[in-house]
Design a protein around this nucleic acid. Structure first.
Lengths: 210, 210
DNA sequence: ACCTGAACACCGTTCAAGT
DNA sequence: ACCTGAACACCGTTCAAGT
């Protein structure tokens, strides 16, 4: 008979089944793409009977929403990290927006299946998921703040509509990332940053001078 | 006993089951979105036992690919029709590219579920579907031709890389259409054309002047 | 509180016939 | 040639227990 340990680990997930299911979902996405996800497979990888997932999520869409939320948080942090890392050099607004673009596209290429989930039809009725909407809003707000301060610094056209410019950049980033991830645009990895600079540069150039 | 008619209509689909399945698929998309499609539901709407679909399609992805092919053909024709309709007035390249943009976004808004199918993850391994790739290529080629002649007419920057400019515009169109269709950007319908002009205008302005 | 287990109505795909 | 029908291994979700 084995010596019993104090902390009862035999309950297996110790209340972390929620996290385990999200982790399993992210793994499934990497292994089999967004279409490979099933609630049952996630439960299988987490080592529990599939019905257990309903203790932590309303339905299978809620698990995907949680994975997408983690993805947007990573994207938001990657963008913020890059911008914060540039603070010392204080480059101009165009450079900072290009840095956002490179980071955004790099994220999509780094996690293609997760990116497709985050922007794909399975999250269509995502208004249900507050936390997801919030973290998307945070990522968006960071981009808008950069454009706002670029205008204030007179490095972008002072007549620019901030909201519309942010949406324009967002659309350009998503469009490019999406086409690259879907392999409709083929770029070598070591060319990706330069390619992103040139493509998004066209749009950002449209933001300068009146 | 009913009078027999010469043409044996009782075979029900007369060999048009393929078309009937694609039509049914397009209807399902309109009714329930891209996630609502199942092979069995398409067969049900076409009035046949579900297995009959395998006589005409390799698998369920092939039915979706056929629906997407029809969608890209419609998009290609809509864009071409708009451009051809402008021939008399001979407007400049910027105006013609904006017309493409408005038509593209209008198509996506007109057929949101079809658009999401056409650009979504379910068509990921679309390289299998020759006809689909071909019709996408045709739509793409029409856009590239406009940019090429815009450069020749000195209305766009002569140093523009035609391929990269086309990819840039394509990304801008897809990004905008996608965000609108996914309801991440909310625009009133009667504002959509003007909004598209302003958003894509930023990018196209990046194509002008050296 | 958290997880199991059986059941239900689906799904795509394969095998074997029917006409 | 084209469609049916039964079967198989899945799926998400619900109901009812188990500890």
């Amino acid at each position: 008979m084995p010596v019993s340990i104090r902390k009862p680990r035999n309950r297996y997930h110790h209340g972390d089944l929620r996290r385990a299911l999200v982790t399993a979902t992210l793994q499934i996405l990497e292994d089999h793409g967004p279409e490979g996800f099933t609630l049952r497979e996630a439960a299988r990888r987490a080592g529990v009977e599939h019905h257990s997932a309903y203790r932590h999520f309303a339905d299978s869409a809620a698990i995907l929403a949680a994975a997408a939320t983690a993805g947007y948080a990573e994207l938001r942090d990657a963008v913020a990290g890059t911008l914060d890392g540039m603070l010392d050099d204080d480059p101009d607004a165009v450079e900072r927006l290009l840095a956002i673009a490179r980071e955004y596209v790099a994220f999509a290429v780094r996690r293609p299946a997760l990116y497709r989930l985050m922007t794909g039809p399975r999250l269509n009725e995502s208004a249900r998921f507050e936390e997801l909407e919030e973290v998307i809003g945070q990522a968006y707000a960071r981009v808008q703040a950069e454009i706002t301060s670029g205008i204030a610094a007179r490095q972008l056209d002072r007549d620019l509509d901030v909201v519309e410019a942010t949406l324009t950049l967002w659309a350009a980033l998503h469009g490019l990332a999406s086409l690259v991830v879907m392999r409709r645009i083929k770029v070598r990895r070591d060319q990706l940053a330069a390619f992103t600079n040139r493509v998004v540069g066209h749009t950002i150039r449209g933001f300068t001078r009146g």
